[in-house]
Write a protein that binds this DNA or RNA. Structure first.
Lengths: 140, 140
DNA sequence: CAATATAATGTAGCACGCTACAATTATATT
DNA sequence: AATATAATTGTAGCGTGCTACATTATATTG
C-alpha cells in the first residue's frame, strides 16, 4: 500500500518506537509518556492545558487523556481546572529529577546518531526538508 | 524526542494511516487488513503462511493473528494447517472481487501522488534512498 | 531412540491511536 | 436575558502494535 513511502515510513516509525519503549521500560515509561513529560518540562513556567498537548503532538483528545491518566496514576503529574476558564484543565509536573531527563536525552541523542549514521550533514538536512514537504502535502 | 526525524516520521505515518482508514471504512476494512489482502492477492498461486505475513510486514505474530482473525470473521480469508508440516497455517483468500482491489489501488496511487506533490523525480528517489538508509541503520 | 532444542501458532493483557457520543463551561447571537 | 454555538474535557469501544507465557509439531543431538 502507498507504493514505497508509506510502508517505509511506518517501518521506521514502529521500529524506533519499539526500541525506545524497550529502553524506557527501566523508568516505567513509554515513549509517548516520556515525550509528554519532556514537553511539560520544556514549558515549565507556562501553563499547559490538555488542549495544548493535543495541538503540539497532533493527536486526538481521548489519546491524550489516556496517557495523562497513566502519568497521573504514577504520580508524575497533577492536573487542575483553570480558575479563570473552568473548561481548561492544566497539567503540572510533580517530580522533576533532572537525572531522568538527562538519561532520556542521552538516549535520544544516541538514537538520532544511530539513525543518521553514514549520512552527510547535507543529506540529513535534505531528508528533513523532504519529510517536511511530504507532511505539508498531507495537511492539504 | 529524537530531535527531528522521529516526530516527523511518526506524524506522517499516523496521518496517512488515519486518512486511509477513513477511506477504507466504506469497504469495512482497515489499512492493515487491506495491506494483507493485497499481499495475499499478489501471491496467488504460492502458499502463504502466517509466518510469511509476519516476515513480510515485520510485525510480531500476535499482531498478525489478530488481523487475520478479523479478516476470517468477515469471510474474506480462510486458513488451514499445512498437511506436510502441521505447525504451519496457510492463509487463503476467499472473495476476490477485482473491483475492490482496483478501488484500493486507485486510492493508493492518488495518495502517493498527493504525498509527493511538488517534488521532482530526483527528490523522490533521494527521499526513498535516504529513508532506506535510515531504516538500515535501525536494523543495526 | 529418548531427550532436548527450535519453529510456528495461540492466549492474555496492556498502551496508544482512533471514532462517536456526551457533558460542562464560555462565548455569540438574537 | 434567552438561546444557540463553540470550546474543552470525558467515556465507551475498537483495531493494531507490543511483551510474556504457553502449546504443539518438527529437528537435532547424545
Amino acid at each position: 500500500m502507498f507504493d514505497d513511502i508509506f510502508p517505509l515510513v511506518k517501518l521506521i516509525s514502529d521500529c524506533i518506537e519499539k526500541e525506545a519503549n524497550q529502553h524506557l521500560k527501566q523508568y516505567n515509561l513509554t515513549l509517548s509518556q516520556a515525550r509528554i513529560l519532556i514537553y511539560l518540562r520544556e514549558r515549565m513556567g507556562e501553563k499547559t492545558s490538555q488542549k495544548d498537548i493535543e495541538d503540539y503532538f497532533e493527536v486526538t483528545h481521548p489519546t491524550v487523556i489516556g496517557i495523562l491518566k497513566r502519568l497521573e496514576s504514577k504520580g508524575l503529574i497533577t492536573s487542575e481546572f483553570d480558575s479563570k476558564d473552568k473548561r481548561i484543565k492544566n497539567i503540572y509536573l510533580t517530580e522533576n529529577e533532572a537525572s531522568i531527563y538527562k538519561a532520556m536525552d542521552d538516549f535520544r541523542k544516541t538514537t538520532e546518531q544511530k539513525l543518521l549514521q553514514g549520512l552527510t550533514e547535507v543529506q540529513i538536512q535534505e531528508l528533513k526538508s523532504l519529510l517536511k514537504s511530504v507532511y505539508a502535502n498531507i495537511q492539504e
